[in-house]
């Protein structure tokens, strides 16, 4: 370990990033908190945060939580069997297939949401096909259902990847051992496979729930202007209303949720499972 003459030279080398991180990560976050707890005159106040209880904002928050929750559950229900199938296919052959399932994760979500606008529109692709087949058309664009669909479509890969990772890491012989000790396939799943995949489930839930909770673009594009989520409210405060104090206050509320999520995650991680 003689790469550095002393700790000082290593520190010197790390310092540009340290300065950068303080200026562009720590300070901006501090500013959000500062704006969140002050009013226009600069006086300290909790009003901005407390205004989350006003009916419009509170409704938006509840709606956000509800839609994010439903989307997370759907993502989980779709991703878990998928992860199991992929994990059971065993190495080498499936890396390409797994890649196919997680590639959309890194693709622009704006475009992915745009595709669903096109598909779901009143005279969109899906309805055209339905009409052609003489089936009743669907009208879900600009509804909560469309937003949930958009969330599931966008965030599904974020659920698949960690679940697949945790499942594929389970040693085959651990499963065999459970069978060997008399467990049938259901018991093996409930007592071994599922608990061992909990870390993957939790990080999947986080990776879906947080972006779903805080999105504004999906609701704008698929929910029309009628359905506002907490993300839309915050966005409007900064781009239309220019009330940075309120916007920051509501952001603090969001961050509290993120923080809560992280705490739950770290607790269940330490205990090795919540089941």
């Amino acid at each position: 370990m003689k790469l550095f003459k002393n700790a000082k030279s290593a520190f010197l080398m790390a310092s540009p990033y340290l300065v950068w991180a303080v200026i562009f990560i720590v300070v901006p976050l501090a500013m959000v908190i500062y704006y969140g707890v002050t009013d226009t005159s600069g006086a300290f106040t909790f009003d901005n945060i407390a205004r989350i209880s006003e009916s419009g904002y509170f409704k938006a928050l509840c709606r956000s939580i509800a839609l994010a929750f439903i989307s997370t559950v759907i993502c989980f229900l779709l991703a878990y069997p998928l992860g199991m199938i992929l994990a059971s296919m065993k190495l080498t052959r499936n890396t390409y297939l797994v890649t196919l399932f997680i590639l959309p994760m890194w693709m622009n979500f704006l475009l992915r949401t745009l595709t669903w606008m096109t598909l779901l529109e009143g005279k969109g692709v899906i309805n055209t096909v339905l009409e052609f087949l003489h089936l009743p058309t669907i009208n879900i664009i600009n509804t909560s259902g469309a937003i949930v669909l958009g969330m599931v479509y966008n965030f599904l890969p974020f659920m698949i990847l960690p679940i697949y990772n945790s499942l594929s890491r389970i040693d085959d012989n651990v499963i065999n051992a459970a069978r060997d000790l008399g467990a049938d396939s259901v018991q093996t799943f409930l007592r071994i496979t599922l608990p061992l995949s909990v870390p993957g489930i939790i990080s999947g839930i986080t990776m879906v729930f947080i972006p779903a909770l805080t999105t504004f673009a999906i609701s704008t594009m698929l929910g029309g202007s009628k359905i506002l989520l907490i993300g839309n409210i915050i966005e409007q405060q900064f781009t239309q209303v220019y009330d940075w104090h309120l916007g920051s206050g509501l952001s603090i509320v969001l961050m509290i949720f993120i923080l809560l999520n992280m705490i739950i995650e770290s607790i269940s991680d330490k205990e090795g499972g919540i089941f």
Partner: peptide, 20 residues
């Protein structure tokens, strides 16, 4: 016969203990 129905038990390579 499925493994869980057999009257024998196995000690696996690398132990295969249930880590949780």
């Amino acid at each position: 016969l499925a493994p869980n129905k057999r009257q024998l038990n196995t000690v696996f390579q690398k132990y295969a203990l249930f880590t949780h």
